[in-house]
Design a protein around this nucleic acid. Structure first.
Lengths: 131, 131
DNA sequence: CCTTGACCTTCCCACTGTTGGAAGCTCCAT
DNA sequence: ATGGAGCTTCCAACAGTGGGAAGGTCAAGG
């Protein structure tokens, strides 16, 4: 299977497959006589694992850890759970950050009449004048 | 006022002040005889405006627009509100994305017993096995 | 056999925003 | 005059992804 096929089958772009290989997240793929990367079902499964991990927002480094644990049949699930919890905390912090941005901005937007007049509470707030 | 003073006064690092100038978000600062950038109260107010905008998650390009509108005394507040709404939509999309990640991952974490045993619903899910 | 188009290769660059560092200059106080 | 803090510019890195150029390969069809 060439890289394009593996990309379609896994949902990871060919660009990213090469990138993951270059950063060592994937072992170097075997090559055809012409130098084309060759993939098998096992590789596609690994790529899908990576894609699902990315869909959950895990970083490359975290995924490196997850793949390692995945391939170690004797890992304690405790370790996996710890890694997942850590990422969950990260998501919570990000969510809180975005949510406070959202509420602050939503308030300002609701205060702005949004017509042809130039006075605008949004700009006034950004400029530091208390609204 | 040197760049370090302006940085302290505005809450924007000296590094970032130079960067904002280099990308044209700030006009080139005037220079002392020795080539040091000189800032006044007006510049500090602009920097604070930029910092508050970044605190709300606006991108550099969006801030470029906001600063332009801010400095145009005759802008209709409609335009500011449109820009803000657009960013609000962006925040909503990001929030929804993170939230779905969070719920999916939280579910998996709650399913994993997290002890010394190797079987783990988190890895099984990432591997594509239905849980 | 040759051409064409789709696919592959490597390499470099772009983007988001921010930080760090190196080499060298300036300013101020001791 | 010397040291340290602060300034200058330039270059690189981070994460992750996409775009593109220049060139090799493969299969189909004339």
């Amino acid at each position: 299977m060439n890289i394009g096929q593996a990309a379609k089958a896994s949902g990871v772009s060919a660009k990213m497959i090469r990138h993951y290989e270059s950063v060592g997240l994937l072992p170097p793929a075997s090559r055809s006589d012409a130098g084309y990367r060759q993939y098998g079902d096992k590789d596609v499964r690994t790529l899908q694992f990576i894609r699902r991990s990315r869909d959950l927002g895990f970083s490359i480094e975290e995924i490196r850890g997850l793949v390692g644990l995945w391939q170690d049949r004797t890992r304690p699930s405790r370790e996996v759970k710890a890694l997942a919890r850590q990422h969950l905390d990260f998501l919570d912090r990000k969510l809180a950050e975005l949510q406070s941005m959202k509420y602050a901005l939503a308030h300002l937007v609701s205060c702005c009449h949004g017509d042809e007049r130039p006075d605008c509470p949004i700009l006034e707030n950004l400029a530091g004048e208390r609204t």
